[in-house]
Design a protein around this nucleic acid. Structure first.
Lengths: 350, 350
DNA sequence: CCGGGCTGGTAATTCGTATAACTCGTCCCC
DNA sequence: GGGGACGAGTTATACGAATTACCAGCCCGG
């Protein structure tokens, strides 16, 4: 019979006393230590008593001896709050658990003091490593204290180049999105970006670069009039799609650099009485679960592989191979839905 | 000068040796223990050496002595993944941090074996308490092992009545939503629910009960033809809104029991050429951040106070006042946007 | 009849910190 | 000048588990 109410815990000494053996015997039996021999009778008794008393190991005593705890720190700025990035935690936690580790998570909300304090606390708990995650892809400065422990930068790149980083392959994503539209037969393909293509935001820069490369590979000259900076919100998608479609030479397809932007475009096109994908084809980016599958028609978009990135971050931590400063890029797979079709009348000859 | 690369850590003994004092002195000085007197010179030296060697306390040694760790366990089914419930973690973590505690989080994804194993691990780490959180409001069975530690059920109710629970006030929310429409002058108010109003889902049951109560208080007889069960997805909102508005006596307003359902209704109304709120008023539920503010017009809806609920869960844990089995209900505030207006022609006299 | 090997265990120590109990001076006051 | 009070520290121990070194019987062979 277990004793539910027993706070303060049963120790190995309690088990040893009740079983009439020494604490060492209990430890050796319960851990099934190699190279030791105990009578079956003793083993049976120890196990029975341990179960009976509801013995549970004290992890702190173990860590104190062994030096490293079964925990990994996860520090994020807004990761838990960001609607689509919960997966990044889920992936990290799943991989950690496979290795028998728990995740100690902190959301700093951008507060540097809180960040520093939580890192200190995590280190005092001897975490096996720290994942330093960012809500959106950028180049960031990692706190020095992380040099004391295996650390990985997730969904961003470390400016100092000291830590391995994991980030999405933005350029390839922009390329794939554009290529999808080219393959469908489009030639006038616009892009509504989520920021300045020459700015600081790797997503805006990379996705645009991929867009340009795809066009050039197809022998097309990127028309600067077809690129709009946007702002990452649906208002940017709405306004720019409206402007593009009412302009002198409207595109037959639009690549929106995120799904929110695409949603704005949907609303603008609806207002203009244009149908998707019949009149205009659309490709998004992010595969935002609460949005992309539910638009009518479903939005063809690129997925940010957050689950895999989270997993990989922990894996790098565990591997510990000092791959200093290398950034690993993750490809964004195309998620096909129903917002792309052939253009109404092909403007090119084939 | 700190020693960045020094894994394995500086201990109090190292500091003591370097400062030429005993380990006890280091402990007493660094913890500023009450009732002890040391010379300023000694204090200064200890602090200086500790800083110099980069001393950091070993939390495990402390816990081993003191019995309770500065950590709280947070076990959720899909909480981190659910798009809108990340706030529940954020709130819990914020409150925990104010008390100097870290959060040990696990997403079980509904896996009971993983759940049991992580609870065992958490208990072996001597967590100060456990928050047992659910993605959606329901009545659930709490693992027995949680009886060994302070525990709180979050966003659900404990069937056994052993643990304090925290849940949203669904009935009051349904009432407020309906009242808002009544106050605007509506008399034919439909409801598209997110499930069976006599079923197991507290949200569906409670929100419906509030709807009925508001109507009755206004002297109206709830028309069963105006209530639709729905399914919580936008398809339920789309189909039911279409049916309601093309029926014999269409409502002038619809209360959708969640925002996704409301979104479906938006699309149905758009298809019918009806404008919101001019032709039909709409109220949602959930205040889903990635949706409600971005619909055109912005959706008036009720907010689930996840941040506060998360905070309160940890607070109850900390208070530890044995409020056995009591459920604390949190009111859902109305978030006013632009989807409610007076009916086109009032069907009642005033 | 004695040594060696095997069986079945135990004693003692370690990890790093906190704290109760104690020691050794020195000063002060009667 | 003797004793109490205080100042400034130190010593020793406990927390719970893991592990190394050891030990007591017993059996067997030469």
């Amino acid at each position: 019979m277990t004793r539910p109410g027993s706070r303060s815990g049963t120790t190995m000494n309690d088990v040893a006393a009740a079983a009439g053996v020494s604490q060492a015997t209990v430890s050796l039996v319960l851990n099934d230590a190699a190279g030791t021999r105990f009578s079956d009778e003793t083993r049976r008794k120890v196990h029975a008593v341990a179960l009976d008393l509801g013995y549970r190991t004290n992890a702190h005593a173990k860590v104190l001896r062994d030096g490293v705890a079964g925990m990994i720190g996860f520090v994020g700025d807004f990761v838990a709050t960001a609607p689509f990035a919960g997966k990044i935690i889920e992936g990290a936690q799943a991989r950690a658990w496979e290795a028998g580790l728990l995740l100690l998570t902190v959301n700093t909300g951008g507060d540097k003091a809180l960040e520093a304090a939580s890192l200190e606390t995590m280190l005092s708990y001897k975490v096996a490593g720290v994942v330093y995650a960012a809500m959106y892809h950028r180049v960031l400065d990692v706190p020095d204290v992380l040099a004391e422990v295996p650390a990985v930068v997730l969904n961003s790149r470390d400016r100092s180049g000291r830590f391995p980083s994991i980030a999405p392959q933005e350029e390839l994503g922009g390329y794939a999105a554009t290529k999808r539209l080219l393959d469908a037969g489009h030639r006038r393909i616009a892009m509504v970006n989520i920021g300045d293509p020459d700015g600081e935001l790797p997503a805006a820069v990379g996705r645009h670069a991929g867009y340009v490369r795809a066009l050039e590979e197809a022998g097309l000259n990127p028309d600067s009039g077809l690129h709009r900076a946007g702002d990452g919100h649906e208002s940017g998608g709405f306004d720019n799609a409206l402007a593009l479609m009412t302009g002198p030479q409207p595109p037959t397809a639009i690549f929106c650099a995120n799904d929110r932007t695409a949603w704005g475009a949907y609303q603008a096109l609806a207002q203009l009485g244009l149908s998707i994908p019949h009149d205009v084809s659309l490709v998004g980016f992010d595969n935002q679960e609460t949005l992309a599958p539910h638009l009518r028609p479903g939005l063809t978009t690129l997925e940010l592989p957050f689950l895999e990135m989270g997993r990989r971050a922990v894996e790098l931590l565990l591997a510990g191979t000092d791959r200093n400063g290398r950034t690993e890029y993750f490809e964004c797979p195309l998620v096909e839905r129903h917002s792309v079709a052939a253009p109404l009348k092909s403007t090119s000859s084939y």
